[in-house]
């Protein structure tokens, strides 16, 4: 059975930028990718990472540590919810990277839609100390959709 895109791991590379997509697990070998990076600044787009397990977290942490040793200034963009979950559990899963934006779970009380919406760190960061969460517009019914997790829990990684 051929692996579907969601079951495989793909890296797309352009100058100063990586786009990671699919599963980060023991087969992704992401730690080996760091040795090929020779740029002083790097942005990594994580929007299409669909899954990461404990072995993937270990490799991801090793990848970040290697980049830090190489003095690469790293920015993580459009972090998928699965990556946020890991960054909330382990400080090293974020490392010293700057987080530009990330996905957060929302739910619409009007139509029952549930999904993730992209939020910018600079918009969310001031809300967190106040115990407030961003809102978004439901893509189905255009009503206001509310944040569907705990502020204390989901945005913990922003404090690291």
């Amino acid at each position: 059975m051929a692996a579907s895109p969601a079951q495989s791991f793909e890296v797309t590379r352009t100058p100063g930028r990586l786009v990671l997509a699919g599963r980060i697990d023991e087969r992704a070998q992401i730690a080996d990718l760091a040795a090929t990076i020779d740029e002083p600044t790097l942005a990594i787009d994580l929007a299409d990472v669909t899954y990461i397990n404990s072995l993937g977290v270990r490799d991801w942490v090793t990848f970040l540590r290697t980049l830090a040793r190489q003095d690469v200034a790293l920015t993580l963009e459009r972090c998928a919810e699965v990556m946020v979950l890991q960054m909330n559990m382990i400080v090293d899963a974020r490392g010293s990277a700057k987080i530009a934006s990330f996905y957060a779970p929302f739910a619409c009380d009007a139509c029952g839609w549930e999904g993730a919406a992209l939020v910018r760190t600079e918009d969310v960061q001031p809300l967190v100390p106040l115990g407030r969460a961003p809102v978004t517009t439901c893509p189905d019914c255009q009503q206001e959709a509310r944040f569907a997790d705990f502020v204390d829990r989901y945005f913990l990684f922003l404090a690291a």
Binding site: N53, S54, L55, V61, M89, D92, A160
Partner: peptide, 16 residues
């Protein structure tokens, strides 16, 4: 403790 580090080596990461 969020400073927990994954176990290295060929086996599990100790986080599962």
């Amino acid at each position: 403790d969020r400073s927990t580090r994954p176990r290295q080596g060929n086996g599990g990461a100790g986080l599962g």
